[in-house]
Amino acid sequence: MKTKLSGFVALCAALSFQVSYATDGHGTVAVQQGNVVYTAPSGATQVLTETGADDNPMLSPDGKLVAFTRLTRQANEQDGGPPVRDLWVIGVDDQKAKKLVTGKPEGNEDPEHVLAGISGPVFSPDSTTVYFMTAAWATSSAIHSVPSTGGPQRYVTSGNSLSVVRHGKFAGALMVAQHRYMDGHGSWDPQVLVSPAGKKIKVIGQGPRALQSVESEH
Rank of each mutant, 00 (worst) to 15 (best):
K202M: 15
G117C: 04
D86S: 06
Q95L: 06
W188V: 03
D183W: 11
A136H: 02
Q212H: 13
Q95I: 13
K104R: 11
G80E: 08
A44K: 01
Q206M: 09
S148W: 07
M133G: 12
M133R: 15
K99H: 07
R209N: 15
D110F: 10
M175F: 11
L5E: 02
G63M: 10
L100E: 05
S213L: 15
P190V: 02
T69A: 10
V31M: 05
L174M: 03
R70Q: 02
V47P: 04
K99E: 06
H26R: 11
P57S: 09
S20I: 05
T3Y: 04
S148F: 03
Q32S: 14
A197H: 10
S42E: 01
R73F: 06
D24W: 09
V19D: 02
V92H: 11
G27P: 12
V101M: 07
H26D: 00
D55N: 14
S163D: 15
D55G: 07
V29R: 05
V122W: 07
T102R: 14
L71R: 13
L162T: 01
Q191I: 00
S16R: 09
T72M: 12
T69V: 13
G25E: 04
P121G: 08
G52M: 05
V203M: 14
R154D: 00
G207P: 00
S187T: 08
S60N: 09
W137M: 11
P105I: 05
S195L: 13
G205I: 06
S124T: 07
V156W: 02
D110G: 02
N160G: 06
Q153M: 12
Y38T: 03
L174K: 12
L59I: 00
G25M: 03
K200C: 04
L162E: 05
G52K: 01
V114F: 09
A171T: 12
V194E: 09
F132M: 10
A138M: 04
S145W: 06
N108V: 07
V122Q: 00
S163P: 06
S140T: 11
G25I: 03
Q32E: 13
P196W: 04
R209C: 12
